[in-house]
Amino acid sequence: MAEQPVIQTRQLTKSYGRHRGIEDVTFDVTRGEVFGFLGPNGAGKTTTIRLLMDLIRPTAGAAWIFGLDVRAQGLEVRRRVGYLPGELRLYEGMRSEDLLRYLGHLRGGVGWAEVKRLADRLGADLDRRIGELSSGNKQKVGLIQALMHRPDLLILDEPTAGLDPLIQHEIHALLSEAVADGRSVFLSSHILPEVEALCHRVGIIREGRLVAVEEIDALKARALRRLEIQFATAVPPAAFANLAGVQDVSTQDSVVRCTVVGSLDAVIKAAARFEVVNVVSHEPGLEEIFLAYYGGTDAP
């Protein structure tokens, strides 16, 4: 028998009147996996996550975490899940330590040593009033409350959005440790490099529908890559026509620009016949991934 998925959704649907919700979202997250939920803002990432946390209730479909129905067995689910909301709002008048103690008590108490360890690890000062903290430091408090009971599963909605790169890096390191510890992570993001750095698999959501679930490598292989090659002398445009996976070729004197899907092999070999001065390749971003999945006309 296959191992029980950590998260399982089947035709999960949420309609909000005229607003867009999500429709027929079905996916599995396996144990020990970091699953990235990728999509532009407003695509339905937060809706899906809040359905998993039983903060909102599905119009149709269902979801299970550790095989437990998130509606009927939500208490047991929430015992074993750490959650970081996308829009983190903390009681501004409390000190961080007091808030964490309160949230810990609502779990029946958590080991304070772990809180200390996380705070040290993140460099968070728990004595300060939350209202005085920068958004980065608030996010640290948010992460500590999600991690402090050592949950089997972390559900994180845009964990690094709007934070400076240094803190982003710290958070990534912390999450990698959690994964090395055997936990599973479900995180949403609209930043491709983040998903790339952390995730094993990615689900892409767009306008409320899950359009693809892919290994991160497969996703990148399908991404469009913009390539700019500068040659020593002008080259004949024909040399780059009809190459496998190469599109939108434009030749301007000694510079050739094109878009490549998947492997760069064909275009590099074609270029090698001339004297190459410089090659500029842009890492595919979220936009390029979306272009690959939806074509150029109706990309977000």
Binding site: L55, L75, R79, P85, R89, Y91, L103, L106
Partner: peptide, 14 residues
């Protein structure tokens, strides 16, 4: 409305 209840409701408390 302030959003502060969200973390409370994410605990194992009915």
């Amino acid at each position: 409305q302030a959003g502060t209840l969200e973390l409370v409701l994410a605990r194992p408390v009915p």
